[in-house]
Design a protein around this nucleic acid. Structure first.
Lengths: 344, 344
DNA sequence: TACACCTGGTGTACCGGTACACTAGTGTAG
DNA sequence: CTACACTAGTGTACCGGTACACCAGGTGTA
């Protein structure tokens, strides 16, 4: 046993009375080894509690068995949201089931650095691939990573013609469900207060909403793109509701925005759902407990993370069973939607 | 330049016309090197965009420059919560500023495995230390890691006599503030619905509450320990409010529990805050937008993560400036607390 | 003048694995 | 009986750095 306390392949080889090549072969299942020898080696490894050094393997194989998840605080310092957290859950469980590690990096793009972060990760050989989230319009990251030769998977929708593997969530079915739901309740004038203009997913949801409203022959009363925050949403909601022909129902970019919208409406004397119907998007647990319980578009973000990790593993040449991914969004009807007030 | 595309120390040495030892010395600032040579080496490294291979360094130095954050789903599969997400933010930003990586692992303790996870991380040499969260009563992890020789930092409170370095949050000042606040509003009978009995932090909050209520000469109407979920909280709230002498104010273990409690009370015909005052704990953004806005104990979890990371770095022998940490909890008074109903 | 010492380097073993070339022994076809 | 293939291994170079021993040449000092 080495002086550092950790066993090495040599210790195992010595204990099993074979060469270290034999140990390596047993471990990796390469070459040919007799069952008896294999058993002795495995026993010795167990006895010594030996695991191959991740760094030695990484050095020799030029493979680090690690994937980076780079979270980008597009504007301002980055932080980890609930959704991101669920995504992490899905990614990590899948990766670790295949022996891969997840290295987390938060970068503040506004302070330039992001390109350098990727370069450093690649040049230092710390990771075999990177998973990207929150694509923005004009996103340069897929191209950068391709140039650097680092496999990448995007959680979100790439821009047209960008061949990066991705987990795309088509927002249209769920938005259609939501619009359908509102139409069947009798709403005619709908509004949309979603995420910022530079976010691809926010724009797709917005376009899906506009298309769906038109397809249902309804009136597009207001469409706003703003920050993903309660404050921004409350401000936008006040403006929209004070307009000449205010909507009787509003779709929001996430649950916090929706709940802030309910409050903004209440401050203007409008009750939810009697005077204004509201639909969120996210599926926060807390949505079930507020008054009224929030009708929302629920996302299976954990599953999305799992699919992203599987795509990554496939990019790295690992065979993984195909997970079917037919989109992960679904309308969850609770209490914040109702027929519009009579005469509206 | 190596065939793989990435430059090695040999490429840099060759380009600078020196030995690779010289390059290493320049890089690490060890030994003596003339300014002229140093400049040539640095220029060559820049030209080739060379970064030392993280794995080669890790192998030679037996240091991986990586810290593990092991998240434990004490019961059931682990998931990442908002609080955990903020913690990650604090930890990662601090670690990366010193060149350390953060390797994330989620483990399901109920399916045994956790001890093995640590053993594997140690035996494979993937990490230099581990940050633990959510200590439970009778937590075996600090002892296990000490036995394995892996430096550990605990985010939370260790059990008495357990010498693991930790970021302790003393819940007493904030709980005192909360009780004081309620007492000054005129409340006499208080209740507490907190997290499960096996969680150290939940128990400390519970004890702090009991002590504070006694110190203020108030009546301890009900004290419940239950799961950190809306469902569990709603159930407990109903039971407590149906009791013989129900409290006029309730403290909860987190914001979702508090909001579920408000709903449970409403279902029983009690309005918040007129009939029942409610105080949460967490500081979710959404708490500001619900009706009534939630009075809560806010935690600066990001800061807590930063402090944890600094402790870790210090454990690893890195000199870091001391962050002052005088506890991170503070009562945030919003609208869910008011004087008790007359005659109660 | 001789010796020690410092500066600015060079040469090489080594960290712990894997890949590849190679070999001894056995079975089998010609 | 030899040729050939196959099995079950061994020996060694190498991945990309760092640590340590060593060395040439200049300077200070007895």
């Amino acid at each position: 046993m080495g002086r550092s306390g950790r066993a090495t392949i040599n210790d195992v080889a010595e204990r099993a009375g074979v060469s270290k090549t034999a140990v390596s072969k047993v471990l990796n299942g390469t070459g040919s080894i007799s069952p008896a020898t294999r058993a002795r080696v495995l026993q010795a490894a167990r006895d010594l509690r030996w695991q191959p050094s991740a760094h030695a393997v990484a050095l020799r194989r030029a493979r680090s068995q690690t994937v980076a998840l780079v979270l980008n605080g597009h504007d301002g310092p980055p932080s980890v949201s609930v959704t991101t957290a669920e995504l992490i859950t899905g990614i990590e469980t899948t990766l670790s089931s295949r022996g891969y590690g997840l290295l987390l990096h938060l970068v503040d793009e506004s302070r330039d650095g992001e390109a350098d972060i990727y370069r450093q990760l690649v040049d230092a050989g710390r990771v075999d691939g990177a998973i990207l989230t929150d694509s923005v319009v004009g996103d340069h990251r897929p191209a950068l990573l391709r140039e650097l030769g680092l496999p990448a998977v995007l959680v979100g929708t790439p821009e047209a013609g960008d061949p990066v593997p991705h987990v795309r969530t088509d927002p249209r079915p769920a938005i259609d469900q939501a619009v359908e739901h509102l139409a069947s309740l009798g709403h005619r004038r709908l509004g949309f207060i979603g995420g910022p203009r530079d976010r691809v997913q926010a724009m797709l949801r917005r376009e899906a909403f506009e298309a769906s409203v038109r397809a249902h022959g309804l009136e597009l009363s207001a469409v706003v793109s703003t920050a993903y925050s309660g404050e921004a949403s409350a401000r936008a909601t006040r403006e929209v509701l004070r307009g000449p022909t205010p909507p009787t129902a509003l779709l929001y970019g996430n649950d916090t925005m929706a709940i802030a919208g309910i409050k903004a409406a209440r401050d203007l004397g409008l009750r939810t759902p009697q005077d204004l119907s509201v639909i969120g998007a996210e599926g926060l647990p807390v949505g079930a407990w507020i008054d009224p319980p929030l009708t929302t578009v629920q996302r299976q973000v954990v599953l999305r993370g799992q699919v992203a990790a599987q795509l990554m593993l496939r990019e790295l040449g690992i065979e993984v069973p195909e997970l079917d991914w037919s989109g992960d969004e679904e309308l969850l009807v609770r209490g914040s939607t109702a027929p519009p007030p009579p005469g509206s």
